[in-house]
Write a protein that binds this DNA or RNA. Structure first.
Lengths: 159, 159
DNA sequence: GGTTCCGTACTCGGATAGTTGTTGTCCGAGTAATGAGGG
DNA sequence: CCCTCATTACTCGGACAACAACTATCCGAGTACGGAACC
């Protein structure tokens, strides 16, 4: 089981957008330069965040991206599900109904099997942890030098 | 983020092996027939479980697989990590050190960034839930008819 | 008849192709700022 | 001086390759049964 790179990209970009709030909107190219990422593919992921309502995109010559709402209102779960999709990691194919269970009468497998229940419970715990942390929490726990460093580097990009 | 089918296969096969304990060892072909799965690929997954010490394999004409220890001692986390690998789903590439952070002095990024910490915490919660459930728990919560159905179907396969 | 030996059939184990999903890129359509031209 | 309009630069959105991972399969190593030969 593997999570795509886009999640790390999206979270760090959201942090940068929060710190560069008064410079908004920030175009994709500048944002990509902050972390040395492939610009076009990063844009694809930022579009995912726009569709989820986390970012707002501004078209036009001075356009770019900005946070759509306050960092306190953006949870890590929001970002993860926006980029990775809302499907569960564990997908049940009901293999218990194939082979030995194929000839059983209707209603035998009305209840979900314990395997699915257990996996869902674990993923729920994972989601609860992610939902408990907001972008503002990440900003608070970040190194004090991070905002200034981001702003300085961004100023050099524009110049 | 997606989990492979092998996890569902592995868990259901472990349940079947527990119920067919006195028929052990069970060869791959019979086990695959129980759930109508591709036999050779299933065997690959069972080998993962053997490497993890969850199953024991018996070679030879009357060979097959059996549980290596009691169901009470097999957690869902054991099975999941045996099949999916022990890597974390979220892999940190330290993109904060690229671009804006590339020219910073040594020691600036000594501490892990908050993104990694948060993701690790979430995955830890997921693992704790999986580790809290054993194969014996799954057997207890399964439909009362499941063991008998499995044994009946297996008897037809051998006959 | 009992014992030993060998061939056979069936099993695990690791190395090898096919298919799906993710990563990365490119190009066309649309939009707002910019500057020129005319009223 | 103000308004209109074309140009330009930037974004969105979908379509198109490259890569990796998962899925699926084939052949070699090893073991127990069955039978034949021998004592």
């Amino acid at each position: 089981m593997r999570m795509g790179e886009g999640v790390e990209w999206g979270l760090h970009c959201c942090l940068a957008l929060a710190w560069l709030e008064d410079e908004a909107p920030i175009p994709t190219g500048r944002l990509a330069a902050l972390f040395n990422l492939p610009p076009v593919y990063l844009k694809k992921r930022l579009q995912d965040l726009v569709r989820a309502g986390i970012l707002a995109s501004v078209p036009g010559v001075k356009g770019g991206f900005r946070l759509a709402r306050a960092p306190e209102r953006i949870t890590l779960l929001d970002v993860v599900t926006a980029i990775e999709g809302r499907d569960e990691a564990f997908r049940c194919n009901e293999i218990r109904q194939r082979g030995a269970g194929a000839e059983e009468p209707e209603g035998t497998f009305a209840k979900p099997c314990g395997v699915v229940i257990a996996m869902r419970r674990a993923e729920l715990a994972w989601r609860r942890e992610l939902a408990a942390q907001t972008l503002a929490d990440l900003m608070r726990e970040a190194a004090p030098s991070a905002p200034g460093r981001t702003r300085r580097y961004y100023a050099r990009l524009t110049g």
